[in-house]
């Protein structure tokens, strides 16, 4: 499965600047999981919606981290889905937390577009999707890139 192309540049998976991206995602995955675990185990009744959302965000970060780190088309699709959900989540939750502050008595990672985390939660999925588009496996999303990578293996 993993011995696709020995000489050509890797089509996907954690290579090059993608490894930096995976590192940032891993930090957020661990932070989000820890935060959600502490919130839910100690005071879930105080703000069940916010804490359930924290847990959901944590799961999305974990899936995104693993999928970004792994090679292959399936992982690429999964990573694209996770980053898209993440972007939608930070936009929706960020907007709702501004318009309806009462809905979130306690902060989540995505509150006010991730202000508590230097807005990294807002930037991260955009960088992730850009990276995924650039590192798309051959003959997947071919219309988006329109470029055939040189040096395909002759078999």
């Amino acid at each position: 499965m993993d011995d696709l192309q020995a000489s050509a540049p890797p089509a996907s998976g954690a290579h090059g600047v993608g490894r930096v991206l995976v590192a940032v995602y891993a930090v957020f995955a661990v932070a989000a999981v820890a935060r959600a675990a502490v919130q839910i185990s100690s005071r879930f009744a105080e703000a069940p919606v916010a804490y359930a959302l924290s847990a959901f965000a944590a799961a999305v970060y974990v899936v995104a981290t693993v999928a970004l780190a792994r090679p292959g088309r399936g992982a690429h699709r999964l990573a694209t889905a996770a980053c898209s959900i993440e972007l939608a989540g930070v936009l929706v939750v960020g907007t709702v937390s501004l318009v309806l502050p009462a809905a979130f008595p306690d902060a989540t990672v995505w509150s006010v577009y991730g202000r508590g985390y230097l807005f990294i939660p807002l930037v991260l999925p955009v960088l992730g999707l850009l990276w995924l588009r650039r590192s798309a496996p051959a003959d997947d999303h071919s219309s988006a890139a329109g470029v055939t990578p040189p040096g395909q293996p002759s078999g």
Binding site: G16, V17, R19, A26
Partner: peptide, 13 residues
């Protein structure tokens, strides 16, 4: 993770 692939991005990690 940084030394897993040794190139310029190792420093970034």
């Amino acid at each position: 993770w940084a030394v897993g692939e040794k190139n310029r991005w190792s420093g970034g990690v």
